[in-house]
Amino acid sequence: MKISGSYTVPIPRDEAYKLLQDPVILAKCMPGTDHLEKIGEDEYEMKMKMAIASFSGLFTGKVKIADAHPPDNFMLLVEGSGKVGFLKGSGLLNLTPQEGATEVKYEGDVQVGGTIAAVGQRLLESTSKMIIKKFFEKFAEAATQPTT
C-alpha cells in the first residue's frame, strides 16, 4: 500500500530534521510506542502497540534511517512483527523550509502480512494516515514545548 501526505511543523528545518531522529521525541510522539532504543548508528529497536479493525497486537521491530541528506531528506525503514502478523515499510521524508516552519512531505510503501492482512487490510490506509497525523500533531506539540 502506498501512502503519502504532508504536514507542517512550526519549527525551523534544521531543528525539525534533528528532532525527527531523536529517539526520545519519536518514542513520545509515535502512538502506541512502548519502547524505543538506539541500537546502532541510525538504528533503533522499537515496541509498538497497534489496533486495527477487530484486534490489536504488539509489534517488535527495528527502525532504521538511511540515505540521510541533512537537512533535506532521509529514508525511514521500519520492520516489525508480532502475533498478529508482520509489517514492513519504507518512507522518504522531505523537509522544506517555510517561513520559520517546516513542511514535511512523506511518501512511502507499507506492506502487512499474516492475520493483520487478512483482517485489517481494509482499514490499513485509514489507520496509517491516522497514526501519521497523530504523530505529527504530538511532534509539533513536543517540538514547541520547552524540554523538561
Binding site: 506492506q111 502480512g113 492482512a117 487478512a118 487490510q121
Partner: peptide, 14 residues
C-alpha cells in the same frame, strides 16, 4: 489476494 500473496478477504468482515 494482494500483490504480496496476502489474502485480504480473510474473514466474514471482508
Amino acid at each position: 489476494y494482494d500483490d504480496n500473496g496476502q489474502l485480504i478477504t480473510g474473514e466474514f468482515m471482508d
